[in-house]
């Protein structure tokens, strides 16, 4: 693997690469994120943004209590979010634990949802605390069951103790396993990385190691996808693009519950990485409750009156 010519795979070269990164101005990032959150989005743009956000949703269920029936219901909703309105686009993917990948893929294909991907959370999600053979087997299971996207967690313990090469090698190994069968999303769990500097460092580490997407959080830890963290990651993919001419995707997950939050994320994307990232292949939103709110806002814009949760499905 060439790692874009940025590192040669050795600990020393990785350290040189990461140490050369500029630091993040924390106050500045907070201020810019909150300033962008005040942008007013007018009606026509809002309508476009709602449909774009729907097509970017990774519809997620990651519960111990998930059943095949629940996953199938989720898949049905993913393909046709509003059964009464065929103009609503399908979501980007469904995101499930790896034992549910087979159920999801089969059901999606059955109901004409071949265009909807199945993302599997992997490498001992959500903690990432397992040996490498276990993580590899975990990922292989998901790939064999038909996952088209792998959402792997990094070993935060290793990262925080400065053992970057371990994190790097894990990503490289999972990347090789995915090959061209699946996209690789790397989850940082930014709530556990503490500083924005660490988020920027983890972003560059994951991108050099071959990630297709960088993802904020597992959804199991708060705070999750806060606006400044997403801003820092978007700046990282923008800077990485100028270094390598390769566009890496970003996926905020956790805590994005309503249309207003989702549109704020789109504003961040447009103003930071640029309009090229406003596509489901480069920006996804990991969410479950968000989709119903987007649908209700869409109904409001079409009908001229406020919608009721009684008219969207119960998750």
């Amino acid at each position: 693997m060439s790692f874009y010519g940025l590192v040669d795979g050795s600990d020393a070269s990785l350290r040189t690469y990461l140490n050369a990164l500029s630091g993040v101005d924390q106050i500045g990032a907070d201020a810019r994120a909150s300033m962008l959150a005040t942008r007013s989005i007018k009606t026509a743009s809002k309508r476009w943004a709602i449909d774009m956000a729907i097509s970017m949703v990774d519809l997620t269920t990651l519960e111990g209590a998930d059943t095949p029936g629940k996953v199938q219901a989720l898949c049905t909703k993913a393909v046709r979010p509003d059964p009464t309105d065929s103009t609503v686009p399908s979501v980007g993917a469904v995101c499930v634990y790896n034992d549910m990948v087979g159920v999801a893929r089969k059901h999606l294909d059955l109901i004409g949802g071949s265009h909807v991907g199945v993302a599997a959370v992997s490498t001992a999600f959500p903690s990432g605390r397992a040996s490498m053979p276990v993580k590899i087997q975990d990922t292989a299971d998901a790939l064999n069951a038909g996952a088209s996207e792998i959402d792997m967690v990094i070993d935060r313990g290793a990262f925080l103790s400065g053992d970057y090469i371990t994190v790097f090698n894990e990503i490289v190994q999972i990347r090789e396993l995915c090959g061209d069968r699946a996209h690789l999303k790397v989850i940082f769990e930014t709530g556990e990385l503490v500083t924005y500097d660490n988020v920027r460092k983890a972003s560059f580490l994951a991108m050099a190691a071959g990630a297709d997407f960088i993802k904020t959080s597992t959804g199991k830890v708060a705070p999750a996808a806060t606006a400044p963290v997403v801003l820092v990651m978007l700046e990282a993919v923008r800077d990485f693009y100028s270094m390598t001419q390769t566009r890496i995707g970003v996926k905020p997950a956790g805590g994005i519950r309503n249309t207003k939050d989702a549109i704020k994320q789109l504003v961040l994307v447009n103003e930071t990485a640029g309009p090229a990232w406003l596509t489901p292949s480069l920006f996804r939103i990991g969410a479950s409750a968000l989709l119903n709110d987007l649908l209700m806002q869409r109904m409001k814009m079409d009908n001229g009156y406020y919608a009721s949760p009684a008219y969207v499905t119960i998750d």
């Binding site: 009156y305 406020y306 009721s308 008219y311």
Partner: peptide, 8 residues
């Protein structure tokens, strides 16, 4: 009017 038309 918004109260009257609100579905919820």
């Amino acid at each position: 009017p918004w109260m009257a038309s609100h579905m919820d």
